[in-house]
Write a protein that binds this DNA or RNA. Structure first.
Lengths: 229, 229
DNA sequence: ACCTGAACACCGTTCAAGT
DNA sequence: ACCTGAACACCGTTCAAGT
């Protein structure tokens, strides 16, 4: 009743000061809860109880915000895992840490690829290169080797993001979604698509994280083999 | 003058029938010329001299069209290169063919990752798996090995797309753009980013396509090494 | 300096109406 | 069956105006 007394009541406004960091955290929360396309400027103004201009005062545009959110998630992963243990273990743990972060925040997978010059990926490259160096990979072989690892990680990251989007769009639970994918593959013509047909039959026993790490090991074995010869 | 006689003259309409294929080709032309964000429904109606409904009659929505355009570009690459020569050469030539297609149509790189269940990627997986099989990779090792190769290719594809977008946005020519990237890397603190700092100094001698193929060879060497042991 | 929110230009998509 | 194009719901972004 009291609220109705004055016409055209304002929405309650926030009292604490806004900052780039507060905005980035709100963006991450929206992205985690509802995915990339749910991150609209309107949704942000509602969640932060503020106006458009306030957000644009701290952030250049939507892409800048998406990039900052990605850096926010990836930054600590690399810092926490890059220098731990022997180089081979450190490499595996950077990779696993990235996989887990992208699994928890699938939108990061799409974003990492989109703006590769951002700090997030720079840190990944640097950490991978440093560990390869520690593994006694010859200096001139480091860039190609690091590129193979990082690009592989980016590929998996992108696939994860796509899968998460598809899973969300399907509105099925994870179990039935995977069963559906397997069924679609199994239905493929076994003459035209023998490998995929077969893969459809074995999807149950498949673990994404294990396969990801197997790929890392494969590439590390390749790096070792090439530099031995 | 004659045109002015009747008020509210209609835009000239196409005489030939519209088809999904004609629409896909127009989409590819727009994507190649101006990039992904230039592909608007409005731009399509103008180019095809038709209305929105005509397009939606042949195509589910914008994502469907983007996917069909990707299949259009990738489909023939795999068909043309997958079965040529010895398995190792066939594998290299599928990879190189994909690289060249993505280099010529950078938007494909972003799209391939976005909808991985589409025919485009299915064909790639199948071709890679078949050639690994022909390389005598043990059956149970094929999925992980194919995954490593395909995800690596997708990672590079995504980077290529991002680079093309950045190059277009910068409005520099390729030469000065690369020089700028190199300069930015070279400016990085050599203590915090020693590897990237060094990479900035060698970017001139760097060939993306060579590095891509070096990565393929690295992974193939890894596959061979893991299955030998 | 920091914030408000109406207004602008532009999307993808729909659908009643036409042939 | 195939096509038209006004209309709708919704974007990101701007900017005159407020504190």
């Amino acid at each position: 009743m009291a609220a109705m007394a004055s016409k055209s009541q304002r929405a309650p406004r926030r009292t604490e000061a806004l900052s780039r960091d507060v905005i980035v955290q709100a963006a991450v929360a929206i992205l985690d809860a509802e995915g990339e396309e749910a991150l609209t400027l309107r949704a942000l103004t509602v969640r932060l109880a503020t106006g458009y201009g306030a957000i644009y005062h701290h952030v250049a545009d939507r892409d800048d915000l998406l990039g900052a959110a990605t850096d926010h998630v990836i930054g600590r992963v690399v810092a926490d895992t890059g220098g731990v243990g022997k180089p081979r273990e450190a490499l595996r743990s950077v990779a696993a840490g990235l996989f887990d972060a992208i699994d928890a925040h699938p939108w990061v997978g799409a974003q990492l690829t989109r703006e590769p010059w951002r700090p997030a990926l720079l840190d990944v490259y640097e950490s991978v290169s440093a560990n390869l160096h520690a593994l006694d990979v010859p200096e001139r072989a480091v860039p190609d080797s690091a590129g193979a690892l990082v690009n592989y990680i980016l590929g998996v990251a992108g696939q994860n993001a796509a899968n998460a989007r598809a899973l969300a769009a399907s509105k099925m639970d994870r179990e039935t979604f995977l069963a559906n994918v397997a069924a679609r593959w199994a239905q493929l013509d076994p003459l035209r698509y023998p490998a995929m047909h077969k893969a459809g039959q074995h999807l149950r026993e498949h673990d994404d994280r294990e396969q990801f790490l197997a790929g890392i090991d494969l590439i590390l074995a390749g790096i070792a083999a090439v530099n031995r010869g």
